Computed example of a mutant assay.
Amino acid sequence: MSSAQDVEAMTKADTAPYVTFSLAEETYAIDVLQVQEVLKVTEIAPVPGVPDYILGIINLRGNVVTVIDARRRMGLDDRESDEASRIVIIDVDNQNVGILVDSVSEVVRISPDSVEPAPEVGNDDSSRFIQGVTSTEEGLTILVDLNRLLSDDEWAQLREL
């Protein structure tokens, strides 16, 4: 192996893959190991009596999957779904959950050393879901902590249904 290949192998070993997506003109990333698949937006059946960030459920190959609106969950302005919108199916505690995002971009490798702690922005609702931020050539990428995104009391009750 040449030294360039050695460096590339070490670099890959020191990074982790993340799926990037956009919400309100910002770039976010989640651990690719938690992503099951990415779907075009399909019909979502509403469920009465759930928090407003839960859009409803979809049928994914015979399995019922709850879909949440990432914009609402993170306290961002609503936006109509369009051709670029996607539902990212993630696995959290062996349960599939769909997250509606504005668009999915690519898989990137992020070094843990490049991740800065989440900035303190007062009591901003979305900041509690941020694991950290990293700089890329395209700008800042915000790493989302899926466990926090799906860990409040309302969500715990829904997972028991």
Rank of each mutant, 00 (worst) to 15 (best):
V133Y: 02
I130H: 07
V133L: 14
D125L: 15
D124E: 13
V144R: 05
D145L: 01
T141P: 03
S135R: 12
L146G: 02
V144I: 15
Q131S: 13
L143S: 05
G139S: 11
V144Q: 07
L149C: 05
N123V: 09
D125S: 14
T136A: 02
L146H: 03
S126Y: 14
E138F: 00
V133S: 07
I130Q: 01
G122A: 06
D153N: 08
G132Q: 08
D125A: 14
T134G: 10
E154I: 02
S126A: 15
G122K: 11
D153F: 02
G139R: 06
D145M: 05
S135D: 13
G132N: 08
L149R: 04
S135W: 03
D153I: 10
D152H: 07
E137T: 10
S126P: 00
W155R: 07
I130S: 01
V144Y: 00
T141D: 05
S135K: 14
L143K: 02
R148F: 01
E138R: 13
R128G: 13
R148D: 10
R148I: 00
G139P: 01
W155G: 03
L146W: 03
T136S: 12
G139L: 06
D125V: 13
L140C: 04
N123D: 15
T141W: 04
G122M: 08
R128Q: 15
L150I: 11
F129H: 13
N147C: 05
S151Y: 09
